[in-house]
């Protein structure tokens, strides 16, 4: 009953605080929408200058994926490159094709090479390979690819922040001390927080998942129920971790200081970036990061359509993290009351 009373109180406080509600529910949607527009737009056509190539050769290049400009000589083309009008200059020197890159953006450089290779291949009459996909497809954009990770990340991040600050405020305003002078058990305090915040995190997880899939049209072939389950577990981990760490913060500002230490490293190890190039022993750090398991499970469900049995390890590890952090929370409350 005391757990329920605490949960009801947290829910009531939450409903009074419109701005925090907005942060929890609207901020993730806003950021996801921005991400959607940034990474899901039309493919960028590189600007390529072509210098010193015979007209018939120029025609036969027949490049559709780039904006081509013809220059009379190499010098003019290089000048345009320097001015920032071009991304690359393509020329043929002594019968040998040559590309001069602007080079400051590796993504653009790669797309220039891709476009020119494609064009030269066609001209060499090499048969085009038939490409088929095991997962996803030709249309899978980068937003689709890391979207599932983002869904998990935003749920994690905002809940971590809110839970941390809420619990800290309970301590700094003296209400926690007052709470601990009632017959409530330490486990009931942690349970009440889990229950009260749990209601909102469940709503948040559902909203983010629905918005990403139905409104932003994120690629999704798995079960919605599983997405919600993983998201909920991820937010429970964030909730227990946030309240645990807030025991070691003296102010809201010190909660913010946990972001570069606790949140940002998790982003790097969450699968947003390919870790294969990293030292193998460094890669193992990801095993200690809750977001790694959440992101892995979200990707498996949404892109590869995997079932519960395929991702159960991720689910159990997340559950384990939550339980571990909750128990540590109960222990940390001993700082507030001897029993």
């Amino acid at each position: 009953m005391r757990t329920r009373a605490l949960a009801i109180r947290i829910i009531r406080q939450f409903l009074r605080d419109k701005r925090t509600l907005a942060l929890l529910f609207l901020a993730p949607l806003l950021v996801l929408t921005l991400m959607h527009f940034v990474f899901n737009g039309q493919q960028v056509k590189p600007h390529i200058g072509v210098a010193g190539i015979a007209p018939q050769m120029y025609e036969s290049l027949n490049i559709k994926d780039a904006n081509l400009t013809s220059y009379d000589n190499q010098k003019d083309a290089e000048k345009a490159l320097k001015n920032g009008d071009l991304d690359a200059v393509f020329s043929i020197v002594n019968g040998q094709p040559a590309i001069l890159m602007e080079g400051s953006d590796p993504a653009v450089s790669r797309s220039v090479i891709l476009v020119l290779q494609k064009a030269l291949q066609v001209n060499l009459n090499v048969p085009k390979p038939n490409v088929s996909y095991l997962h996803g497809g030709e249309d899978l954009s980068s937003f689709d690819s890391f979207g599932p990770v983002l869904i998990g990340f935003f749920s994690f991040f905002f809940v971590f922040l809110l839970a941390g600050v809420a619990f800290l405020r309970e301590r700094t305003t003296g209400t926690l001390e007052r709470l601990m002078a009632t017959p409530i058990r330490r486990s009931e305090v942690v349970g009440g927080y889990l229950l009260g915040f749990g209601v909102f995190t469940l709503l948040q997880a559902s909203l983010i998942a629905w918005y990403s899939i139905s409104v932003l049209g994120m690629y999704m072939v798995g079960a919605v129920g599983l997405v919600l389950l993983v998201n909920l577990l991820l937010t429970l981990t964030a909730l227990t971790l946030g309240t645990l760490l807030s025991s070691y913060a003296r102010s809201e500002f010190q909660i913010i200081q946990f972001i570069p230490i606790v949140i940002v490293p998790q982003v790097f190890f969450s699968g947003l970036f390919n870790l294969d190039a990293m030292e193998p022993w460094l890669q193992k750090i990801s095993y200690a990061m809750p977001l790694y398991y959440g992101a892995d499970a979200m990707r498996s469900i949404m892109i590869r359509g995997e079932a519960f049995s395929d991702i159960q390890l991720d689910i159990f590890v997340l559950l384990g993290f939550s339980i571990l952090f909750a128990l540590l929370n109960i222990l940390a409350l001993k700082k507030q009351r001897a029993i």
């Binding site: 009953m1 005391r2 329920r4 009373a5 605490l6 009801i8 109180r9 009531r12 406080q13 009074r16 605080d17 305003t173 003296g174 209400t175 001390e177 007052r178 709470l179 002078a181 009632t182 017959p183 409530i184």
Partner: peptide, 26 residues
């Protein structure tokens, strides 16, 4: 018990504060 600082939940009404603590005392 009455603590030195007013350990009250500012966002809630007096009644809600009382209901909360009353529930904690069973």
């Amino acid at each position: 018990y009455m603590a030195q600082s007013d350990a009250l939940y500012q966002e809630l009404t007096a009644l809600e504060n009382l209901q909360f603590f009353a529930s904690l005392y069973g």
